[in-house]
Design a protein around this nucleic acid. Sequence first.
DNA 1: GCTTGACCTGGGACCGGTTTCATAAACTAT
DNA 2: ATAGTTTATGAAACCGGTCCCAGGTCAAGC
Lengths: 312, 312
Amino acid sequence: MTNIHDIARLAGCSVSTVSRVINHQKYVADDKRAKIEAIMRELDYVPNRMARDLSNGQTKTVGVVLPYANHPYFARIIDGIVSAGFAAGYKITMLPTNYDVTVERRYLDQLRSKAYDALIFTSRSSSLATLERYRKYGQIVCCEDPGDERPLAAAFTDRLASYINALAWAKRQGYQTMGVVLSRNNLISASTRTTRAAYEQVYGDLAPEKLFTGAVTYDDGYRAGAYFANLTPPVEAIFVNGDNIAAGVHQFFVDHDCQPLPVIGQENLLTSRILKFSTIDHHLEALGEAAFRLAIGSSTTHELIKSEFIKR
Amino acid sequence: MTNIHDIARLAGCSVSTVSRVINHQKYVADDKRAKIEAIMRELDYVPNRMARDLSNGQTKTVGVVLPYANHPYFARIIDGIVSAGFAAGYKITMLPTNYDVTVERRYLDQLRSKAYDALIFTSRSSSLATLERYRKYGQIVCCEDPGDERPLAAAFTDRLASYINALAWAKRQGYQTMGVVLSRNNLISASTRTTRAAYEQVYGDLAPEKLFTGAVTYDDGYRAGAYFANLTPPVEAIFVNGDNIAAGVHQFFVDHDCQPLPVIGQENLLTSRILKFSTIDHHLEALGEAAFRLAIGSSTTHELIKSEFIKR
DNA sequence: GCTTGACCTGGGACCGGTTTCATAAACTAT
DNA sequence: ATAGTTTATGAAACCGGTCCCAGGTCAAGC
């Protein structure tokens, strides 16, 4: 591989001058510049990215931490991040965790070792305190509402408001009892916390039998449908944490000739459009774009993305 | 930031010895090793990734070139690549092109500048000849059948066989005329070429009026549905280049109270499951995993992934 | 006693760039 | 004529590691 020294030697000048030409800086004589450029072209020379990055102390790379790549929720966020990153000339690296805290920690250590300029957590298993400790090694952006304390940069949707809005609408439609389907039943998950809070505000206490947890996929939703089909007394509608999961719930009713309970989904995926149930569109692409802006250092440290309730 | 020289100074030894400790090499006295490890822990030291990469001449990074991230076809391949990459300790970087050849060229130049160890083209706009010219700067993997000439590594599905299989099945079912929906009507797209070839083998010449092109999304499929609904003489079934697009075709018929024409989709997405139409599952995750293996240098240079026809 | 080889350690070149600083020539202003 | 500024260039330190090689110690083998 030809390097900057080769170019300098062939051009009969110093590497400093070549470097100036590469970076389009002033103070290079026109003829010398032309000559160096000609030699670079002739030798098919491209400056080594790693060397530049090392010298500049930056990678122009942002890591995206996510549980798994094949989930529409994360896919949409990633789409936004990748688009914004592309426009800004940044590289986006995918960092899957499978919800393993150890793996998350490994990525944080990579941030420390300057493998990335910043890290975006689309979801997290580590505590906020842990994340804050790594803040000094690079920007860290969360994709959740930080609440009152705002130590970390965050891009988030107005989940609570949109959940309350959707549930209140359902109640006005006459659904007096409401079942809930969630993914994880722990308190780290912002989605879980917020759903419970919204539910309590509209429907009061969330009775344990009205809650089905552990739902991530269509098949999980199918099982949730089975659960609610056999529940006595039955609920009148179900609030589900994702359109594909809601589609599973719906499909169970169809497959078993039950009167389908109305479901409300999230993400506004194709499935809700096809099966014509209401859903909340969180505008996740916009969320991803905002997260990226925060990652490479915007003046603000928090961005709220407005959700949209799609009644069907 | 503390670096290896700081550690060496504090430990009263040379950087060589510290480097040996970092890399768990032999020939370091036990007490000295313990001391160095203690100091590293105390100072919260992590070796700089960029410096190591520069010195080693590798990045442990593979770039994935794709038109756009939010398409299920590419999402599934990426899923496979990311999983395999994670297992092998590699970083996966997303490189969107929007089918812009200029952008593709830019990524090839980044390969030249050692920004990645390898590049995986899930789709390409550049010619194979162009890709081959960049082969010497790093491994390049295509996700398409290379045919007779096999200069580049490739992971691909048995498209032709699976298309013929699906179309032949449809013909046996009694569908004597078949419409076709495709994305791009050019010869670079392997999918387009192969579909035409399979069609000709089963149904003979593909009459222009039986072909609808430019379909990438559900809405495109909806338009395709409108097209075939008004076609005279009508076709008896439609072979579509993706489940979500096929869902759009189907939905047009439903929305307009036509007798829905049977559709055959691809990718075995949730939509085909819900709407219960037949589809070809190309096992794209497996394809992605194979592509990654080829990217980091497997003994073989070509891998064929078997498709599966799902009759519904 | 001498050779041999395993073990331990450090100096310094090297990976391929960027950047500071010193130097000098050419030009401008007094 | 002199001081001050702009332009042009190169030497060398630096970013933070890896690794080859030279040199030294020490015990086993003959």
